[in-house]
């Protein structure tokens, strides 16, 4: 109960922050719109539009960027002290970071459900039609991973600025090699290898297979890996989060 109270409180904090709300709900739509528009002429009419392509890739990217929401919810200058202060209350330290993960996950999942629905039914983007629920599951697992990863970076680095600027690096690299911005096929063997290493590639491929081939073979391994990676992040949180280091 107490844990849920903290999580609910964090949830409210996030949705009261206009910037976080904007970056989770509006920015993905804007990104899809702009990328789709700008690349419109590269795509033929009919089968697949630029919006269909960038709809999936930009949502994947935005879901990964939930990392920023997590670091912000945990250690932004204005909430950091109050968050750390909770160690004086009779709660386990795990409850402090788990509540951040849970609240970020909820905000992220809700906003991406909203975006996927709006995209598919409002703007006619192909997010899988009847298979939409599977895409939702896939994206929400990614959001979970992002929440855990961002929180972990905070626990390890102890500072929002550091955590978010350092997390941006792998996110951008994985995204670039994962084919978020442009197709990475035909760019040589090194890139092909890097692309296969990038988790982003597998998520995008999993989504495209579901949408265009009714092929679900990747769904289970991808979600399980994301869950596993999230569990690892939580473990690192437990090991590295030392609230006493923040008190002075």
């Amino acid at each position: 109960m107490r844990f849920l109270k903290i999580a609910a409180f964090d949830f409210r904090n996030i949705i009261r922050n206009p910037t976080l709300l904007f970056s989770n709900m509006v920015l993905p739509l804007v990104l899809i719109g702009v990328m789709g528009f700008v690349t419109q002429s590269f795509f033929g009419s009919g089968l697949l539009s630029s919006y269909d392509y960038y709809g999936i890739t930009m949502i994947t990217l935005s879901a990964l960027l939930v990392i920023m929401t997590a670091t912000n919810a945990f250690m932004e200058e204005q909430v950091k002290k109050a968050n750390i202060r909770m160690i004086y209350a009779p709660i386990a330290k795990a409850e402090i970071y788990l509540s951040k993960i849970l609240s970020t996950f909820l905000v992220g999942t809700l906003s991406f459900i909203f975006i996927l629905m709006i995209g598919q039914y409002g703007f006619g983007i192909n997010f899988g039609g009847d298979h939409l629920p599977y895409i939702v599951i896939l994206i929400s697992m990614l959001v979970l991973f992002g929440s855990c990863f961002g929180t972990m970076m905070c626990c390890v680095l102890g500072d929002e600025e550091k955590a978010s600027s350092i997390s941006q690096l792998p996110v951008l690299l994985f995204s670039a090699f994962g084919g978020i911005f442009f197709s990475t096929y035909g760019l040589g063997k090194t890139v092909a290898f890097l692309s296969n290493v990038s988790p982003v590639k597998w998520i995008v491929e999993c989504a495209f297979r579901i949408i265009y081939d009714n092929d679900f073979t990747l769904l289970l391994p991808v979600t399980l890996s994301l869950l596993g990676a999230s569990a690892v992040c939580i473990l690192v949180c437990q090991l590295t989060f030392k609230p006493e280091e923040f008190t002075c």
């Binding site: 096929y185 035909g186 265009y212 092929d215």
Partner: peptide, 10 residues
């Protein structure tokens, strides 16, 4: 080939 291979640019 799978349509997704086409989408992904393979």
């Amino acid at each position: 080939p799978a349509m997704s291979a086409l989408v992904m640019g393979k």
